[in-house]
Each structure stands twice: as structure tokens, then as C-alpha cells.
Design a protein around this nucleic acid. Structure first.
Length: 214
DNA sequence: TGCCAGGCCCTCTTTAGGGCCTT
């Protein structure tokens, strides 16, 4: 079964385009419906962490002073996730930092590193949720807690449990269309883009497309 | 002077605007 890497960044701000840098990254590998491996590291890019972010994440400037360099951490996490599709909650955010930090570390881009987004999927599948913040969805589905929110490993683990719940619910909801097929990464990427009224059509189309020889 | 993210979704839309979500 395909192994997927769920990642989460903590950063100094909202956008790498505005000079924000990553302060911590975590990746958890999900295979056969469970977490099978974990990677987590603080990363010292030399960037200053604003007080608001120190308070939000608990990651302080003094903690980063002794952390490994951002470039070596990115090389390590790229190696850890090699060949795995990626998943994040609000993937547009993490994708931006992933691409920026990978480029700074001079890593070769991995074609397998395509992002699926649990935020987009949750908006499709759980319109009845009070909102689609990671913490709210964790409460909504009673997902296991993995530690302090706004730390990379804890958030990545919660996102991994949300992903597993999404896969389970897609299977339950569209089992007939899937005909015994698993909920793979390509289907999740198709679903997150599907019009909310066209989920079933999307699944059927994906299954038909999957039957065409490459 | 005032503003300064980006991507996505929804709707009183598409020649746009506002809200959500991430740190």
C-alpha cells in the first residue's frame, strides 16, 4: 500500500515571500491505515521569531540558537519523505514553505512530492463541522491528541489521523463506486478539487480513468 | 498615506468582494 507523508511546518510568519522562515518541521509516514514512522526537528535559519509566534508555538529564539541548520534539516526531511506523496492541513501554506526551504537547501525537487490538502477535503466532506480549523476538526471527530497544538509533530499527527478519517469516510460514502479500490493519493487530490456537488461523479471518473492502461 | 500572504471557496459572481485557514 502507498506510503504518504503528512507534514507540518512552524514558521516565523505567514509567507516565505515576505521573508518568513521555517522554525520546525515534522513528517509522519502513514501506511495501511496507521502511522509507521515520524520525523521532527527544530531548524535554525538565523531568522528572528516574533514574540507573538514564540507565545503561539512555544518555539523561542533561544531554542533555535542551538538547533540544527535549516538546510541540513530540509535535506534530512526530503530524504525521509522521498518517493512519498505529501499531505498537509491548508497545504497551500506548507507547500509554499516546503518549496522555499527545499530550494534554499539546494535539494533536487522530488516529483512524488505532490500535496493533498485535508482542509479542502474536510470542507467537501464535513460541511456540518463548526469550522475547518485543524483543532476544531480534531474535536469534531474526537481524533487522538498528540501533544501541544502548534508544534509540528503534534499537528502533523493530528493531520494524519484526520487523513485516515477522511479515507475511511470516502470509502464508506463511495464504496460502491470504488468497487473495492483503496482511497489513494490521486483520488484525494481529485476530490479536493471537485465541486462539492460532484463528489460521486469525481470518484466514478477517477475509477474509470484508473482502469485505462498507462 | 496606507497598505503590505496566498490559495481557495462562496455568493447578492464571473468586468468582484469577502471570509476562511495556515504561522
Amino acid at each position: 500500500m502507498q506510503t504518504v507523508a503528512v507534514i507540518d511546518f512552524e514558521t516565523t510568519g505567514m509567507s516565505p515571500g515576505q521573508g518568513a522562515r521555517a522554525t520546525e518541521i515534522a513528517a509522519v509516514l502513514v501506511q495501511d491505515g496507521r502511522i509507521v514512522d515520524r520525523f521532527q526537528s527544530l531548524m535554525n535559519s538565523g531568522a528572528w521569531v516574533p514574540p507573538f509566534i514564540e507565545q503561539l508555538t512555544g518555539i523561542t529564539n533561544s531554542m533555535l540558537r542551538t538547533a540544527p541548520g535549516a538546510e541540513s534539516v530540509m535535506r534530512d526531511v526530503a530524504r525521509f519523505t522521498r518517493g512519498c506523496p505529501l499531505v498537509a492541513h491548508n497545504a497551500a501554506f506548507d507547500r509554499g514553505f516546503w518549496q522555499a526551504e527545499i530550494a534554499r537547501a539546494d535539494c533536487e525537487p522530488d516529483p512524488a512530492h505532490q500535496f493533498a490538502c485535508t482542509l479542502l477535503l474536510a470542507r467537501r466532506l464535513y460541511p456540518q463541522a463548526p469550522n475547518h480549523k485543524l483543532g476544531s476538526l480534531a474535536r469534531f471527530h474526537a481524533l487522538p491528541s498528540a501533544g501541544r497544538a502548534h508544534r509540528a509533530l503534534a499537528d502533523a499527527e493530528v493531520t494524519a489521523h484526520l487523513l485516515l478519517r477522511v479515507q475511511e469516510d470516502v470509502q464508506l460514502q463511495f464504496g460502491a463506486e470504488l468497487g473495492g479500490r483503496g482511497v489513494d493519493h490521486r483520488l484525494l487530490m481529485a476530490l479536493q478539487k471537485a465541486n462539492k456537488l460532484a463528489l460521486a461523479r469525481c470518484v466514478t471518473g477517477h475509477v474509470k480513468a484508473s482502469k485505462v492502461p498507462a
